[in-house]
């Protein structure tokens, strides 16, 4: 796993916090749903920061919010990545529903662009405002239309914090069970301080196959593999 230096080129204020543009070698860039970790030399920060990409592979690396408040353009970052298992967008997917529940929809932006690139129609249901960089082709639905989006889709990708999964599950109701053929994945957001190095257990999640580490076995899981209270 390469550890390289990168540079934070710019920061942007968004409704979900600071986002940024990072100059780094291609080798560490994460795919949709994967992550990389970044450490600054700032003494106040004793832990590395988890970064998710909002870009396509051939574009400059835009990372989703929230970045630490003390980060500034020109900051040197020690980067390790790409880490974890990301989204697996089926090649045949043509109706992609994206669900951002109490989390920035920007986390799904790179997946959005992959889906559009393969000719899929994409809808976004988000409890947060859509990101400014959301492509125009994406249909934005109010979150109240979540069930309609699920009924329409042939692939569903969600992003949510671990503590919100039970709520999301309730909102999805029986729709996932009724759509047995629907491929549904979820990006679980939770602190991953060791990023796979330590099996520290903070990010442990209970699945139908037992305890898993979100940092190693995820952060993307099949929604059908998750227990009620991950």
């Amino acid at each position: 796993m390469p550890i390289v230096n990168g540079t934070l080129l710019e920061i942007r204020f968004t409704e979900s916090g600071l986002a940024g543009l990072v100059d780094c070698p291609r080798a560490v860039r994460p795919g949709p749903g994967q992550y990389l970790i970044a450490s600054s030399q700032r003494e106040e920060e004793a832990l590395p920061v988890t970064l998710f990409s909002m870009s396509l592979p051939d574009e400059p690396l835009q990372v989703s919010p929230p970045l630490p408040a003390g980060w500034y353009p020109g900051l040197t970052l020690r980067l390790r990545g790409p880490l974890g298992h990301g989204f697996t967008l089926p090649r045949e997917a043509r109706r992609v529903a994206l669900v951002a529940y109490q989390s920035p929809a920007g986390l799904l932006l790179s997946l959005t662009r992959f889906a559009l690139k393969q000719g899929a129609a994409v809808t976004l249901c988000s409890t947060f405002p859509p990101p400014p960089a959301l492509p125009e082709e994406v249909e934005v639905l109010p979150f109240s239309q979540l069930k309609e989006a699920v009924a329409w889709a042939d692939y569903l990708a969600a992003a949510f914090a671990r503590e919100h999964y039970a709520e999301l599950r309730q909102l999805l109701g029986n729709h996932l069970q009724e759509r047995a053929s629907l491929s549904a994945e979820g990006l679980i957001l939770t602190p991953m301080p060791c990023a796979g190095l330590g099996s520290c257990g903070v990010c442990a999640v209970h699945t139908r196959a037992g305890w898993k580490h979100i940092c190693l076995d995820g952060p993307v899981f099949s929604l059908r593999s998750l227990e009620e209270a991950p």
Partner: peptide, 23 residues
């Protein structure tokens, strides 16, 4: 040992608190 139910990591200036239950 299973993970602690309220497992978490909390940061403070210059450090962090780790509660895992040592699974």
């Amino acid at each position: 040992r299973a993970p602690a139910e309220n497992r978490t990591v909390l940061q403070f200036a210059g450090g962090f608190l780790l509660h895992t239950g040592l699974p």
